[in-house]
Design a protein around this nucleic acid. Structure first.
Length: 507
RNA sequence: GGCCCCUUCGUCUAGUGGUUAGGACAUCAGGUUUUCAUCCUGAAAACAGGGGUUCAAUUCCCCUAGGGGCUACCA
């Protein structure tokens, strides 16, 4: 059986779009599920749209996502871009001579022709066609040029492009692995430009040549390519090549159902990463946007994704990119994560340290605070919020109270339900006395819980009437982790200080 | 305008010629918890419309409507 090979073929035009991430993921999963290869090819044939640094960025993100490719463009130790693999180079801009050869072959075999029409003529023609409400198409003026004329224009160094010679009649059809049979009349297919006047090939030509040369077995790409697939099929035919299989993926949509775009919110993978979404969670979320396992499972490990993915589970309708569920999935992954690992990931959001060189014996300065703590302490702080965090970026705000020198809150907050202020104050005083007698080393969640429960029982007070005022005194917040856990993180001195502060408020 | 594609709860989706049309997120209610979160229980919530075919249609066919994509010397 033929080896399964898929590729991810982005253009280096800036950030990595979440839709592209999904495309890459599906292509990756399909290849790996079938024990095949997944390769990366950079489609940089449009020089005007090239954005500096985007290849580096892309490689970095793919790497952090775990979408490992076996051939393509990699970053070496020093972050230099290098190309590796049997069928390279993998940057189209470095393959110009290859395309040139194939374009010449097409001209030779009468499947393509020189076109000397000026941009102005083309623009005018298009305008005219649009005003008459006919489909804008090249009028094939240069299709009939004879050899002599062509040579003459060539000799005069007239600017030219090369166009694909599309059959005038008949139909081109193919079977898409997602959409099924697609059939289009050749007469409505334009004589597509395959080589631009700057000598660069267009997407259509470069794509076909590369996919053939790189032995791609399955082209997995976005639905926006569906209408131009017949052109590609025709190109394969013109070369006498067997076309690969096609699987087009439904688009990701804005809330208004248009194609997902930057205008209506974040679409760059790096933005989501920056906000504190975990790459596993993002992958899991995007996996489910347009694919389902035919069971009710929703959380998939990377290994499980590979095992379970198949193209038959891909649906046809576009899906709105709504991050509500992403938040849930992310929270899920955060809760399951090993505390040390989670803490490391939280460091950029919690401390002023951006680069984590050495965790052991390191000191971390807390953001917007003058506090400096070690990693073990950070772990305790993160543990406080692990089960209520949806995104890593929330950590700084949610544990701010731990590090502040003076809490700000209304005194009424100290009063629980129907309690009186007097009662709250008394209970807090009672608590103070009890905690004051406690040894520093007894400031440990379980012990505190035991001691405070005991206090409530002995004095015949509802637990809430002890614990609520205490918790508020320690946090100044309506909602927070329990006073036991917080007491442990804060330590005796701070706890007593804050309780005293609370009591004073009520005097 | 032309061509192509799509249409099940608010969102992601399952599903079948006969189902109480299932799940998840979000929402709401209740329980657990001192609070928040977690966790548990429950509720509300969908087959775009119209014609066929059929004993029976959400499911098959046609039409309409709506949405989207493409229509570049961009990918």
């Amino acid at each position: 059986m033929k080896k399964i090979r898929t590729r991810f073929a982005p253009s280096p035009t800036g950030y990595l779009h979440v839709g592209s991430l999904r495309t890459a993921l599906y292509a990756y999963l399909f290849a790996k599920h079938n024990d095949g290869d997944f390769i990366l090819r950079i489609e940089d044939t449009d020089r005007s749209r090239y954005v500096e640094g985007s290849i580096e960025n892309l490689v970095k993100i793919l790497d952090s996502m775990g979408l490992e490719y076996s051939e393509g463009v990699f970053a070496d130790k020093d972050d230099n871009i290098v190309q590796k693999g049997d069928f390279g180079p993998y940057m189209q801009s470095e393959r110009l001579n290859i395309y040139k050869k194939y374009i010449d072959e097409l001209i030779e075999n009468d499947h393509a022709y020189y076109c000397f029409c000026s941009q102005d003529r083309l623009d005018e023609m298009r305008k005219e066609q649009q005003s008459q409400k006919v489909a804008p198409m090249y009028d094939r003026k240069c299709r009939g040029l004879d050899k002599k004329e062509i040579q003459k224009l060539l000799n005069e160094k007239t600017s030219f492009v090369v166009r694909q010679k599309v059959p005038k009649d008949g139909f081109t059809e193919f079977n898409d692995l997602v959409y099924g049979k697609i059939k289009i009349a050749n007469k409505i297919i334009d004589d597509q430009v395959i080589m631009k006047s700057d000598g660069f090939p267009t997407y259509h030509l470069a794509n076909v040549v590369d996919d053939h040369l790189m032995e791609i077995s399955h082209i997995i790409r976005g639905e926006e390519w569906l209408p131009s697939t017949p052109k590609h099929i025709l190109l394969y035919k013109a070369f006498g090549w067997e076309a690969p299989e096609f699987a087009h993926l439904p688009l990701l949509l804005n809330p208004d159902k248009s194609k997902l775009s930057k205008r209506q919110g974040d679409v760059a993978v790096e933005d989501f990463l920056y906000q504190g979404y975990l790459s596993e969670a993002l992958l899991n979320f995007v996996l489910l946007l347009g694919w389902n396992p035919k069971t009710e499972e929703e959380i998939f490990s990377f290994k499980e994704m590979i095992k379970r993915f198949d193209l038959s589970g891909v649906n046809k309708a576009g899906s709105i990119f709504n991050t509500e569920k992403l938040d849930w999935i992310n929270g899920m992954y955060i809760r399951e994560m090993d505390l040390s690992k989670l803490t490391k990931l939280c460091i950029p959001y919690l401390t002023e340290t951006r680069l984590i060189e050495e965790i052991q014996n390191s000191k971390f300065k807390i953001q917007n605070s003058n506090k400096v703590v070690d990693f073990e302490y950070l772990k305790k702080v993160v543990a406080l919020e692990q089960e209520r965090m949806k995104k890593l970026s929330e950590i700084g705000g949610s544990v701010k109270f731990i590090f502040s020198d003076k809490l700000e809150y209304e005194k009424d907050l100290l009063v629980w339900k129907k309690m009186t202020v007097e009662k709250a104050k008394n209970n807090l005083e009672l608590t103070y006395q009890k905690l004051e007698d406690l040894d520093e080393k007894d400031f440990q969640a379980e012990k505190l819980q035991e001691v405070l429960n005991d206090l409530a029982i002995k004095n015949d007070i509802k637990r809430g009437e002890i614990l609520w005022p205490l918790r508020v005194a320690l946090t100044g917040l309506k909602g927070s982790p329990s006073p036991f856990e917080i007491g442990e993180v804060l330590g005796k001195e701070k706890v007593l200080e804050r309780v005293k502060f609370g009591i004073k408020k009520m005097i």
